[in-house]
Design a protein around this nucleic acid. Structure first.
Lengths: 242, 242
DNA sequence: CAACCTAACTTGTACCAACAAGGTGATCGG
DNA sequence: CCGATCACCTTGTTGGTACAAGTTAGGTTG
């Protein structure tokens, strides 16, 4: 795999300092000139990194003043319920069965999400998850081939916690990005989820990330009438509903 | 007024062509070299413009191939990305207008969310938000009466940032909880959002929290075919698809 | 003293050059 | 005819320079 580019390394270093708190909320980052010297990179490269952070909403830039850590929303990320060995919960679902294991060449979209070359081989684990009597979901997890080589994830068996397996091989999940959309189901989805007519589906794409790279992409289709998705952010100690 | 910078002009020109359809969905943009000549700008400047479009989700870039018009262009709602003076998000939130201001006695559900007694008076601000030409959303923000007493939020006028107003009065947002559901629209929603038949809606309930209490509940209905909800968690420095 | 002005910082924009690396198609050799 | 190779396209990354424009501190001037 190709090395991580310089500006991504710089962005990662700065991001870590922001999250650790060495750069306090609202605090000013070193000037671009100082960052040049510290990372031994050109101003162009430093600015690429800063642009990435600005784009992720972590910093704001004020011409003539400097770059500052965004402080509108606090960065206390102890939400979303750490669970078990994984830092974040794998699933709220009661159980899951592996339906199919498949080798698949990555199309453009998947390659972009996993940050591998288009056409690269990936391992797909398709699962049916169920919880309670009504709701179910169809789920496909995509792994870059080099990550799962020689792990139980290559075997057609149920795995307790895929993220733990990856963590044992040096790829620890440190974050994720979820994308949610809704649309009407296609006939296959409708029959698999046993959907009544007129019920849309909730489509979720989760990208699990280690510090260095995307380690898994999970695509899940939920039955729209039996799912409510909840996200918590920041300090939610004041949130208690009866 | 300072002139619009070169790369923004280029981005605007290309964006217009994409939206007008002269550049078809999925179609390939001229190469960077061709754009250099066409706009008489350096490659760096052209790339700044392209980066802006890529960031707005209008195009995708494939190394060795070219830049292509994104064929599905759902607007991405960045759930937990702070809204600041982010220059890249200018198209995300083109504007909003206050449709109605109303006093409402809280029903059981709302009272539970706001943690006020049932029947308590609340202030409702209904808004129509638009972004670009396609997507829109209907949004209702509910405030406990005692929080907005004597603030601009009691006036039937557009407010730049309601959370800033609350913060100035001692109620600073420190977190939020989002709940997401999908269903088919009712006739009112369908007409307000100008939904084609067979398009579901994404229904979001956001509860904004200060350290002590819920300070606002926002209920938003998005057109399902033109919204993508994105939630980021943890260290996502390895994300960034470009 | 107060108002102004300048020097010295900051980020924003724009240019150039070079090489790396992905992708495609033509060409050449078997 | 088929396969390997190479030329030539593409975008990605990194280095440099220069100037514009916003901001601030400190000194100068009236």
């Amino acid at each position: 795999m190709r090395a991580e580019s310089r500006y991504r390394q710089i962005a990662r270093a700065l991001r870590r300092e922001i999250q650790e708190g060495s750069l306090p909320l609202g605090g000013q980052l070193p000037s671009e000139k100082q960052l040049e010297e510290r990372f031994d990179a050109s101003r162009n490269t430093v600015r690429l990194a800063l642009g990435m952070l600005r784009n992720q909403g972590l910093i704001v830039s004020r011409p003539g003043r400097g770059h500052f850590v965004q402080d509108v929303v606090p960065e206390t990320f102890h939400a979303n319920r750490p669970k078990g060995a994984d830092r974040f919960n794998e699933s709220n679902m009661a159980g899951q069965t592996l339906e199919e294991l498949q080798l698949l060449s990555a199309n453009a979209d998947l390659a972009s999400r996993l940050r591998v070359p288009e056409g690269e081989m990936t391992v797909v684990r398709r699962m049916y998850r169920f919880s309670g009597e009504i709701s179910g979901s169809i789920s496909s997890a995509y792994y870059p081939m080099d990550l799962v080589q020689g792990t139980p994830l290559m075997l057609p068996e149920d795995v307790e916690s895929a993220l733990s397996v990856l963590a044992e091989h040096g790829h620890r999940q440190v974050g994720f990005v979820d994308e949610l959309e809704t649309r009407m189901p296609n006939p296959t989805e409708a029959s698999q989820l046993e959907l009544p007519p007129g019920v849309p589906i909730l489509w979720m794409h989760r990208t699990d990330l280690s510090e260095e790279r995307p380690i898994r992409v999970v695509e899940t289709v939920y039955a729209g009438h039996s799912i409510r998705y909840q996200y918590e952010h920041g300090d939610i100690s004041a949130y208690h509903r009866d």
